[in-house]
Write a protein that binds this DNA or RNA. Structure first.
Lengths: 195, 195
DNA sequence: TTATATTGTAAGCATAAACTTACACAATAG
DNA sequence: CTATTGTGTAAGTTTATGCTTACAATATAA
């Protein structure tokens, strides 16, 4: 009888735009008015899709995570590719890490960790990232036959830290693209082999 | 003829309180009213000490840096201590890293990097940290006679990343104290020796 | 057709927070 | 002593922004 709701579709349609706005502007400067302007709708419409601004932000965090994982899973699953999956991931990140600027959403989130929901969303994201990297490292060690050295769990945290500092250095203009590539390649290799 | 100004002293007196407020609350929630309350003065007084809220925040960033460097220089300069300075720093950080929660000021700053002054203050801080760590690593390599392996500049960035991710993991409750200690000790050792 | 729910558009509201103004009082140099 | 400037206290102002309300237009199932 009633008209069917298009809210889920609309959410999916606008989320990338919302996420980009948060990434470019940070939490404070991404006002609801500005979000609406970029989405080319009234503020009102956003509030029909999410209960409040915080929920929009948390949705953006999840979006960033999902996007990264999508890319990574494609790399890992590539059949007949050269090297271990970990090596391919490292090579990929060394040139593409942070290129969409989505890490700025994470930075924004890190200064909102008083809020339990933001905190939980971020914790979830980091946990998953670390676990993913850890599994890749463990698999790499298996394949290359050297089960020695650094605990994969610790190495995984270090890799996450490497990615984070690479983003910070990029954001602040502290390293060139070439330096960042070397950073990933050389430190990454050290952490992967782990001796 | 006029009464001598006590503004510099007052600034020095209030800055630690302001910094702590920014660390505990983040930029947004650290309202000028709240800062004044914690300093037990009127908002007005803060605006006589700094031109605006942003200046208070930048002063807080510098304060955090100065405090860390003070501690580190004491550790490095300690005469007749055991191990290289780098090893002592690593040992110290493995137990004390982030204990004052001041890193939260950095997180807050990272989501305000659109502002050129905030950006410059942060860039300056990271540059100095990285340089300091790099010099310690280079000195360590000299002393221990192995000038091989990972470029100290890259290793230094990785160490900064290690500290950053340790803070994030602490903030989000993702690791125990013991795990964080192992993270510093084991990954730190790997990066120091760098093979 | 029509009842019912959804969607688009516009305007408005309430509050919070950065920043200002005003002014009495205090302290110091001459 | 006193002129001049710093200091403490209180109140106000203005803008921005998260969020709401109102309502007409639209689309679908019966």
């Amino acid at each position: 009888m009633p008209r069917p709701s298009r809210l889920p579709e609309k959410r999916r349609e606008l989320l990338p735009i919302v996420a980009r706005a948060f990434a470019e502007l940070g939490y404070r400067r991404a006002t609801t008015a500005e979000l609406a302007r970029r989405c080319d709708v009234q503020e009102n419409v956003l509030y029909r899709l999410w209960p409040d601004k915080k929920a929009m932000f948390i949705a953006a965090i999840r979006y960033v995570y999902d996007l990264s994982v999508d890319i990574w899973l494609r790399l890992v699953g590539r059949p007949g590719a050269e090297g271990t999956a970990a090596e391919r991931l490292l090579a990929y990140e060394s040139t593409h890490h942070g290129e969409f600027g989505h890490y700025r959403i994470v930075f924004a989130g890190l200064s909102e960790t008083d809020d339990p929901e933001v905190r939980a969303a971020l914790a979830d994201m980091y946990r998953r990232f670390q676990r993913f990297v850890r599994e890749q490292i463990a698999a790499h060690r298996e394949l290359s036959g050297r089960a020695t050295g650094l605990d994969p769990a610790l190495a995984a945290w270090a890799v996450v830290g490497l990615g984070t500092v690479a983003n910070i250095a990029r954001e602040l203009g502290l390293v060139t693209d070439a330096q960042r590539r070397r950073l990933f390649a050389e430190v990454g290799r050290t952490l992967l082999s782990g001796d």
